[in-house]
Design a protein around this nucleic acid. Structure first.
Lengths: 144, 144
DNA sequence: GTTGGATCGTGCGTATGCGAACGATCTGGC
DNA sequence: GCCAGATCGTTCGCATACGCACGATCCAAC
């Protein structure tokens, strides 16, 4: 039934990938603006937020929770550690792992950072009505 | 009314930014799998697709259409040029610009690449019903 | 206890993505 | 004709993002 793709029928602007890329870029831009005072990226915030929530985790485990592969989470944690927001220790029971925990500075930062995240969240969803927002979020969650 | 964010009330998993990042990653992964035969990234496909559609464009103009800033589109076009999918010429009327056009190889590739893109599109939307897909896409478009 | 497979973190290479600064060029107003 | 400001493309630096290969370590089965 569907016609084969051709320069005439194919519309890049109707594709999920393209729309997701644009929406993601837009949120990232809004987040960086909202969190400019902390110079935190959305990725760094996600990682720091999870470290605070868990109190104590393994690096790879954290990565799985925030959807970052081991190579990516390594760089993110390195930058958070350099800024003194997270500390890395070692588990004598498993010498492979890097155990992460928030520092005082990390705990002090996360509160206002959450406010920035919520501003970015609201700004990104601004084009939608309340009903649409709830719907959009539930559909996004289904996309897993 | 809303309580201040705290480690208790704040849920990263409910935030647009986090969900958008995950959904975008998922689509990118599905696209790379679907287009593995061509070794095309979603970004490269978007750029190539638009070059074919337009036939002839300026580099920055193309970048605006596919939502890539000048620094990004430069690298994307360089890689497409190196692979012989796009040619860069110059407009004698405006010697600042780089005029882009698809090559024969680019035109030959785009057809099957579109099929790959549609497979990735369908796979990414697989968790949603038909109605949900249409709804999700329209909401995504509103997010601008 | 040894060993084979799994897991952890790291390093490298490559591809987006963007801010900032830059030289080259065009354009409008004079 | 000239000049101020805009536009074009490039470069650099930094931050995700991921595949791959690697050494170190753990664990389970024997």
């Amino acid at each position: 039934m569907s016609s084969p793709p051709s320069p005439d029928s194919f519309r890049l602007e109707d594709h999920v990938g393209f729309l997701l890329r644009k929406a993601h870029q837009r949120h990232a831009s809004l987040f960086l603006e909202a969190a400019a005072e902390h110079a935190l990226t959305p990725t760094q915030f996600a990682a720091l937020n999870k470290v605070v929530e868990l109190g104590r985790t393994t690096q790879n485990h954290l990565g799985r929770l925030v959807a970052m592969d081991p190579a990516t989470i390594q760089g993110v944690i390195r930058r958070l550690t350099l800024r003194g927001l997270v500390v890395r220790t070692h588990d004598p029971m498993d010498r492979r792992t890097a155990v992460l925990a928030p520092t005082e500075a990390g705990l002090a930062l996360i509160g206002t950072a959450m406010l920035c995240a919520q501003r970015a969240h609201a700004a990104a969803l601004a084009p939608l009505s309340d009903d649409e927002r709830a719907l959009f979020l539930s559909l996004l969650r289904k996309m897993g």
